[in-house]
Simulated scan of single mutants.
Amino acid sequence: MARFFNSMRDGIGFDLILVGAAMVFLLALAGLPLVYNILMSFQQVDMFTLGDLFRPLAGLTNYVAVVNAPEFWLVTKNTLIFVFTSMAGQFVLGFSLALFFAQNFPGAATIRGLFLVSWVMPGLVVGAIWSWILAGDFGVLNTILKAMGIIEAPIFWKSDPNFSIWAVVIANIWLGLAFNMLLLSVGLAAIPRDLYEAAELDGANAFQRFWTITLPMMRSTIGAVLSLGLIGTLQQFDLFPALTEGGPANTSNVAGYWAWQMSFKLYDFAKGATISVMMFVLVLIASVVYVRSTRHEVRG
């Protein structure tokens, strides 16, 4: 006992208490719900058996039923479109802005800070803003496109099956743009300026400096940004109820929102859990890639 109090006085025991408390917190709020969700995906669970301690086992029946569902392939296609176009838009625009604000001009830091407003706003608020911007009759985007002569008739972004998924993509790109820009700006700031000066003295133009210096030096940062972008986009939920609610006819539905619909609209909790487990596997893979990217960056 005396040794314990001595360790507490030295700070070592207190550190162990903090670490233990954090582990208990993560186990209670993340670990147990995850295990519960995985178990539910192998059971027969509906609104009548949700409160039962022991439920009938279903094996892989729920997974087979989800894959054979009529909307499975449409939702899968929408998820792939949503994830990869959002990631591409966020990364390309974020990298372009990071390179632009890396230049030394008055007000660069202030303007870059204003871009972070979109990142700190809740997803539902962003969805409400873009719902107004993308409105078919009075939306700002249609007004601008008409004024530029790009379109003649208004586009009903949220209710047209050909455009509904792109409405959510546009909003999600805007939502994650600042996060990508911030991380990539940090990576750019870590590159020694001497390399650019030496390359410029050797006659390298801007594109050559970008290709031979910026991209190789940013490889780990880019891997981390893309991995975090994949995780964040797969977990995006708030924009869908605010914009399209997955419609019309599932043309803008994605896996995360489909899992919520299956659980809390159709009360088929087992299939909702099954879809969530499938998504968890993808997020886990992206997390492993992210950890490996950051580990490589630290070693470098």
Rank of each mutant, 00 (worst) to 15 (best):
V45I: 08
D46S: 08
D46R: 03
D46C: 02
D46T: 06
M47P: 01
M47G: 11
M47H: 11
F48L: 13
F48Y: 15
F48E: 12
T49V: 06
T49A: 01
T49K: 03
L50W: 09
G51S: 14
D52V: 00
D52F: 08
D52K: 09
L53I: 13
F54N: 08
F54V: 13
R55N: 10
R55S: 08
P56W: 03
P56T: 02
P56L: 06
P56C: 05
L57W: 13
L57Y: 11
L57P: 06
L57N: 10
A58I: 03
A58V: 08
G59V: 02
G59I: 04
G59Q: 05
G59F: 04
L60Q: 02
L60G: 03
T61V: 00
T61Y: 02
N62R: 05
N62M: 05
Y63A: 01
Y63E: 05
Y63N: 05
Y63C: 01
V64Q: 00
V64H: 03
V64Y: 04
V64K: 04
V64P: 01
A65Q: 15
A65T: 13
A65W: 07
A65I: 07
V66G: 01
V66M: 01
V66D: 01
V67A: 00
V67M: 02
V67F: 02
N68F: 07
N68E: 15
A69G: 06
A69H: 07
A69L: 02
A69F: 04
P70K: 11
P70G: 12
P70I: 09
P70N: 13
E71I: 09
E71R: 10
E71A: 12
F72D: 01
W73R: 10
W73H: 11
L74T: 14
L74H: 10
L74P: 07
L74K: 14
V75K: 04
V75G: 06
V75T: 06
V75M: 07
T76D: 04
T76Q: 01
T76E: 01
K77T: 09
K77R: 15
K77Y: 13
K77M: 11
N78I: 06
N78M: 08
T79Y: 04
L80H: 14
L80W: 15
L80I: 15
I81L: 12
I81K: 08
F82I: 09
F82S: 07
F82M: 09
F82Y: 15
F82V: 08
F82W: 14
V83N: 14
V83E: 13
V83F: 15
